[in-house]
Structures are given as structure tokens and as C-alpha cells.
Simulated scan of single mutants.
Amino acid sequence: MKIALLAVLGLFLGSLAGAALGIGAGLAWVEIFKTTNFEGYSGMLVFFTFMPLGAGVGGIAGAVLFGLLATRDDAIAVEREPVARPDR
């Protein structure tokens, strides 16, 4: 269950970060290649092409990364082991 929850968290955070990076890459593309702004073409290019691609790649990468971290018990301590008490 821990692995699935952390993978979903990674999917959510990765898609947010990927969408933000996609917007940045799209804006850079528009500026570097001098894309025309006729009838909002450059804005549609950024928000309908680069942002969904970035969100998809970031979501998959985040889910895989967090899933791999969750499978390694020594890398992240989500569940605590009970403290062994000496017999009294």
C-alpha cells in the first residue's frame, strides 16, 4: 500500500512539475524560433502541446521515481518499527 500511495503522490507532483517545465520549454521554443502570434498560435502551441507533454513525462517519471524509492526500505522511512522494550 505504501508503494502505491507514494507512486500516486509522485504522479501528482511529477505532473505539476512537468507541466511547469513544459510551459517554460514552450515559451523558450516560441522565443528562439520566432513562432508567429497570429490569432494566438504561439499560446496554443505552448498550452496544447508543450504543457501536456511535460505533464505526461513528468508524471510518469515522478511515479516511477517515488515507486522505486518506496520499494527500498532503507531509503525512506515511512513505517516505523516498534521499539523493543527490555523485559522488566
Rank of each mutant, 00 (worst) to 15 (best):
A4H: 06
L9P: 04
V30M: 15
F12E: 12
L11R: 05
G18K: 01
G26R: 12
G24R: 12
G10Y: 06
W29R: 15
G10S: 15
W29G: 13
G26A: 13
V8Q: 01
A7I: 09
L13M: 14
E31R: 00
A19Y: 12
L21W: 00
G22M: 01
L5N: 04
A25V: 09
G22T: 04
A25T: 10
I32D: 14
G26Q: 14
L5Y: 05
G24P: 11
A19R: 05
L11D: 05
G10F: 08
I3R: 14
I23C: 04
G18N: 05
A7T: 14
G18D: 03
L21C: 08
A25W: 03
W29P: 10
L11E: 07
L16Y: 14
L6M: 13
G24E: 15
L16S: 11
A7E: 01
W29V: 11
L27I: 15
G10A: 10
G18I: 00
A20V: 03
A28K: 14
L13H: 04
G10M: 10
L9C: 11
G26E: 13
V30I: 13
L5Q: 04
L5F: 08
L16C: 14
F12S: 09
E31G: 01
S15K: 14
L21E: 01
A28C: 15
G18A: 06
G24F: 05
I3A: 05
L13I: 09
L6P: 03
G18R: 00
A19P: 08
L5M: 09
G22E: 00
A28S: 13
I32F: 07
L5S: 12
I3N: 05
S15N: 08
L6T: 04
L27S: 15
A7P: 03
V8M: 02
A7Q: 02
A20P: 00
I3Q: 07
L13W: 05
I23R: 03
I32H: 11
L13Q: 08
G24I: 06
V30Q: 14
I32E: 12
G22P: 07
L6N: 06
W29D: 11
W29N: 11
L5T: 05
L9H: 00
I3C: 04
A19G: 12
G26D: 14
A17Q: 03
L16E: 12
G24S: 07
A20E: 00
L11W: 14
